[in-house]
């Protein structure tokens, strides 16, 4: 998990070459409660950094997920579409949301690393 970076809106992003995998943090899924539905974008969609890219819903709440990096959506996790409980069970692993192909090297300097994020949500 050390390679992950986190946003203030509780998304995580993990880089593999020019592919960014994005999901919501374990803390976020815990706050949200049982996830009942995830609305994912179409593959091919072109995103600006900070754009609304997905919606994650519990019974009584809906939260927007924002793109932590700019790029094109190359893959979405259909498994969480069919089985949204995956987000609760493994938010930062099997419960990933989407993969974004980034153009150039993304600037992750504004994001928190795992320990900074842990401090952030501990407050």
């Amino acid at each position: 998990m050390s390679d992950k970076h986190y946003t203030e809106d509780h998304e995580w992003v993990s880089m593999d070459g020019d592919i960014a995998t994005v999901g919501i943090s374990n803390y976020a899924q815990d706050q949200l409660g049982d996830v009942v539905f995830v609305e994912l974008p179409d593959t091919g969609a072109s995103l600006e950094k900070g754009a609304e890219v997905a919606v994650v819903e519990s019974v009584k709440a809906a939260s927007e997920v924002y793109a932590p990096v700019a790029g094109d959506v190359v893959e979405v996790n259909d498994a969480i579409g069919d089985n949204p409980s995956l987000v609760n069970e493994d938010a930062e692993g099997e419960g990933w949301f989407l993969k974004i192909k980034v153009a150039g090297a993304p600037d992750l300097s504004e994001l928190m690393d795992a320990s900074a994020y842990a401090d952030e949500v501990a407050d």
Binding site: V36, F37, E57, S58, V59, K60, A61, A62
Partner: peptide, 12 residues
């Protein structure tokens, strides 16, 4: 499926 509705989703 109440998350579609105004009392949760408000302006969305």
């Amino acid at each position: 499926l109440s998350t579609r509705e105004q009392h949760i989703r408000r302006e969305k």
